[in-house]
């Protein structure tokens, strides 16, 4: 396990998710620790996104418990909460594998929508806002400041007034992260943040994620295929295969875990298919 001995922010216990006869995730337990970057990796179809959707409430798990702890000691059982409540009160923010920005709204507006609940309260549920109360105007200004902070951080401040759908792909990825951060989360869940990025962009992403972890004190859980990102920034890696955990530990130990090598890592491209075929055969054998 990761060394630093910090408290877990998220603990997933015996999580099982079945779709009809298909078990996408079976009896998975792991922890994401506070102030760390935890990566969830595994071959295609290993159930990573399913785990994510369970954590963020988009799926209701068949079995198991997902516990989120805040620094103040408040605890939330995420499997019992609605998806928007998880974002609103448990403060788990997420991004999507296929970017889901509000493409017809500007970058700044996207970040303002992310601060909806805070602003809604400040506008006394629209009534104060209609009459332009001072409290609402101050809150709106503060919200714009927060949006500016994140736009600067993801280097999109010059494109603040451009529609999100007009931004290049890499910028959209960063804007989606900024939008998630504008909800002021405790845990940030990133679904393949480096997908489709070139090496320079994914390098920049690494720096951004490290700074979110250290400067903004937000724990990160990420799904990733890009090994340079995973190995470069993760403090702790959980490896899934066929919905089951096959390895769990720091990057070095995961890298040398024979189970992981067999299933996933350190395999030449040509061999990969072969190995995968063997893994499939083994897995099928085990199930029989």
């Amino acid at each position: 396990m990761a060394s630093s001995g910090t408290t877990p922010v998220l603990s997933v216990e015996h999580l099982t998710m079945r779709f009809g006869g298909l078990t996408a995730v079976s009896d998975l337990s792991f922890e994401a620790r506070k102030g760390q970057i935890t990566a969830l990796i595994g071959p295609n179809g290993a159930g990573k996104t399913t785990v994510f959707n369970c954590i963020t409430g988009f799926y209701k798990p068949t079995e198991g418990r997902i516990l989120l702890s805040h620094p103040g000691g408040r605890e939330f059982l995420l499997e019992q909460m609605d998806d928007f409540r998880i974002a609103q009160t448990a403060r788990v923010a997420r991004t999507f594998q296929n970017i889901r920005l509000f493409s017809g709204m500007t970058a700044l507006e996207n970040l303002m929508v992310a601060q909806h609940n805070k602003l809604m309260t400040a506008s006394t549920y629209t009534i104060g806002g209609i009459f332009g109360s001072g409290h609402f105007r101050r809150s709106e200004k503060a919200a714009i400041e927060l949006a500016k902070y994140w736009l600067e951080k993801v280097r999109l401040i010059d494109r603040a007034d451009d529609p999100a759908g007009d931004l290049p792909y890499g910028d959209q990825r960063r804007l989606e992260i900024a939008r998630a951060m504008c909800t002021e989360p405790q845990l940030l869940c990133l679904d393949e943040p480096a997908a489709g990025l070139n090496p320079r962009e994914s390098d920049e992403l690494n720096r951004l994620l490290r700074s979110i972890r250290s400067e903004n004190d937000v724990s990160i859980l990420l799904i990733e295929h890009d090994m340079s990102v995973v190995m470069g920034i993760s403090d702790h890696i959980v490896v899934l295969d066929y919905g089951q955990k096959i390895s769990d530990g720091d990057p070095a130990s995961v890298k040398s875990d024979p189970a992981v090598i067999r299933a996933y890592l350190g395999v030449e491209d040509e061999e990969e298919d072969e190995i995968a075929a063997v893994a499939v055969a083994e897995a099928l054998g085990e199930r029989k």
């Binding site: 988009f58 998806d83 928007f84 974002a87 997420r94 999507f96 920005l101 509000f102 493409s103």
Partner: peptide, 10 residues
């Protein structure tokens, strides 16, 4: 624009 993204933002 996107209902699912809305829910993910609380």
């Amino acid at each position: 624009e996107d209902e699912i993204a809305c829910r993910s933002l609380g």
